[in-house]
Design a protein around this nucleic acid. Structure first.
Lengths: 191, 191
DNA sequence: CATATAATATGATGATCGTCATTTTATAGC
DNA sequence: GCTATAAAATGACGATCATCATATTATATG
């Protein structure tokens, strides 16, 4: 078909967005190309007109999800919200329960660590941006080197406690994990 | 074949140990039964004489890996080592680089969160044991409820920072993540 | 309206997946 | 040494995997 310019681009975006959701929800390996394309309202054959490989889609989906998260964080911070708002928003039951819309790192970091260097590098770049945002939201009287290490500790805490809260079957413990994560992250931010 | 009693049990153990290593290294989904059995020196057909399903092996492998980790932690603590030793041992480059011998949670927690409730429950039990060990290693003058939440925060920090250190391609940043994780975890333990 | 063309669909590749029925084989007990 | 038996091997099941060659089809352009 000979659609108007931008039609293919739009289709590509739809595939990437579908992938970004399903990868976060089910894991990269659990999602097949055929089912993914069907979800995007297409058949499987057209996939390789858009991407050279599944790995390339993984990178695109990772960037898509990261961009969304970064934008959300930026909006919060520009509204004058503090790091505390970011922490509390991250460690909420709704984020725990909807990984398909949430932090790509929390859903996929262990799987990413096993992917090709090119994918890991793309992820590294996005993670550095995230850490820079956190760093900038820390008290200005903190030496920069301390802020930098503190940002890593804070986000690591958020990442780990969210994953724990997602994995356990005990709902009381799960909530306690979210609360303990907030407590710990805020302690690291303010001490 | 009619082997002496305990032969089958021994074979089963070998399968579980092989699985515990490969699952941690490659992820559960990336490991196929056939290849796994070959790694254990067997052919694929015998698998279902030992396990009702792959999922059952996942549970067994998870328990095997957890037992090993718990034992290692217990040895350290009984030697009179503090929580600090646990933290430093966890956030070491060698642990980052050999996930197949390391913490099952760090390698598989996100994948576990997507498994059957039975598997998640088994994991929950092991995680509770781990947190209890951490809790017991915290200062006795801390109220128990605080110790409990603190233990969650500390292990969450360790989990998250180790995973970050594994995923990034920048080796300098990776080491910085390990160090920042130690710093943050110890701060939470002593404040 | 006809045609060129770009986007998507169809259909197949060989490989691998988890699972299971059947057969082979080694040895423990007679 | 023979035989019963339990453990492992062989081989196959249908399903799904990523990938690609080819065919179809809708529409923008002439």
């Amino acid at each position: 078909m000979r659609f108007d310019k931008g039609h293919k681009e739009q289709t590509r975006r739809r595939i990437v967005e579908t992938a970004a959701r399903r990868f976060r929800k089910e894991g990269v390996e659990a999602v097949g190309i055929a089912g993914l394309m069907a979800d995007a309202g297409l058949t499987h054959g057209g996939f390789y007109a858009h991407f050279a490989s599944k790995e390339e889609l993984v990178r695109a989906a990772l960037e898509e999800a990261s961009d969304q998260s970064r934008e959300r964080r930026a909006v919060l911070l520009e509204k004058g919200e503090s790091l505390e708002a970011l922490v509390r928003s991250y460690l909420r039951p709704v984020h725990r329960d909807t990984p398909e819309l949430g932090c790509a790192a929390a859903a996929l970091i262990a799987e990413i660590a096993r992917h090709e260097p090119e994918t890991r590098s793309a992820f590294t770049g996005r993670l550095k941006e995230l850490l820079a945002q956190f760093e900038a939201a820390l008290p200005v009287d903190m030496p920069e080197e301390v802020r930098s290490r503190r940002a890593i500790g804070i986000f690591g805490t958020m990442l780990g406690t969210l994953q724990m809260a997602r994995a356990v079957t005990d709902p009381v413990l799960s909530v306690k994990m979210l609360e303990s994560g907030v407590e710990a992250a805020l302690a690291l931010a303010t001490m």
